[in-house]
Design a protein around this nucleic acid. Sequence first.
DNA 1: TAGTGGTCTAGACCACGAA
DNA 2: TCGTGGTCTAGACCACTAG
Lengths: 253, 253
Amino acid sequence: MGTTQLESVPEPKYWHLKTVLNDALDSEFEVGEILPNERDLAARFGVARATLRQALEQLELEGRLQRRRGVGTTVAPPRMGVSVGPAAHAWPGAGRDAWETAGCVEAVPAAAIAALLGTGADEAVHTIRRARVMRGQPVAAELLYVPRSSVPGLSADLTPAAHAPAVLRELHALPLEGEDRAVELGSARAEDAKQLDRLPGAPVLVVTSRYYSAGRVAAVSVATYRADTCKLTFGDAGAFEVTHHQEDRAQAS
Amino acid sequence: MGTTQLESVPEPKYWHLKTVLNDALDSEFEVGEILPNERDLAARFGVARATLRQALEQLELEGRLQRRRGVGTTVAPPRMGVSVGPAAHAWPGAGRDAWETAGCVEAVPAAAIAALLGTGADEAVHTIRRARVMRGQPVAAELLYVPRSSVPGLSADLTPAAHAPAVLRELHALPLEGEDRAVELGSARAEDAKQLDRLPGAPVLVVTSRYYSAGRVAAVSVATYRADTCKLTFGDAGAFEVTHHQEDRAQAS
DNA sequence: TAGTGGTCTAGACCACGAA
DNA sequence: TCGTGGTCTAGACCACTAG
């Protein structure tokens, strides 16, 4: 036939639904506004609830929606730009960063962490758990590993409350020579999820950083950022001022 | 009662299933090996196929599995470390990077891109579509936006084949003063998905870069990386040599 | 207690890839 | 043609939040 193909690859329902909802969010809803519940929405669009949920899941992954059990689905604000350095080479937690220390223990890290640190397989290191907070929301859960050899001046007996601050103080006194970073997609484990106020399995951006001093790795940080609410920024120039909504429209066009 | 709670928060089946499968992948399967099909696996674990798929989806998101329609589910190799600069300040595509130009047009970009570039809302810019290939696999689809004012020396009439190389040549001749970067989670649109050999909606890491020259934004790049197969690396030090499997075990411990 | 999202089931059909 | 993963349905029950 001489006619053009109408739809050689028929679009899945949930994909079309996602587009429709995305447009509706731009034109008919305000940030923070609550959507109709899933059963009503599914009925309104004439699909099964599971199909609707497939569309909602994608929109949540893209940071357009926020869903909370027992509450409802709300329109998410634009993603927060979160600087993850290297902003004028600095030790983690130095400066006026909103990091909150949640605890500190000395423990043998996982094999992969020990490999990054260059420590022995059975060597205990200072392990500091921290939370990063922006605009009153937790955005990241971090585990900071500091070998004992990096902070030799540490006094032997410390109260739990004094432990983390003392390690950080010693660490910040070292000359920082360089840093390394890697970013990959992961899913939140139970402990991190709790700290991030999300369910286990929520998508996160895992940032693994190595800090160098005296030609060695002086510390390693594994920080898991909420992928739905955060946009990680790198580099020395100013933060991107474009809003998330504009970027979405850019992608859609 | 004086007994401790057994499970105040009962673990979802798919979550437990994911753990079991993850361990099995480490101990009983080789990279590239094909798993039993979903119907058999579901029956073996005594769950519905949808529940099994929920576990498989998470494992695929974490880069442990690769699923292809009509073929089957295979054990994925460790994620590739992909450098996304700033590696000795360089224009995109300079050096021996495995970028393949797919096309080039002059078009008015989306409003968000125009805002990043600082161009007028109706101003056409050179738009180059490229693919980044590593180890024979496509890892990223990129759109590179170059305003006409950044490459004033460009001859007016160019054949389509000569267009992109000419723009890149002019761009690389400029002095690069700095760069900006942001990383966020997104889902692949149809065009990018095709280029990445994935289905639309596949999770991607969107890297937005601004390149500065003469105090202005000389080019903007929006690159979407396959989130399942890529680990983005930043910084000047050598690449992380830890394998993905080790990292997974580190997370799990 | 009522209403929300989260989990789970047992089916069905479709699109794709390989033989 | 056959087996695979991808989509979709119409239910059900559970966990959580708020009033």
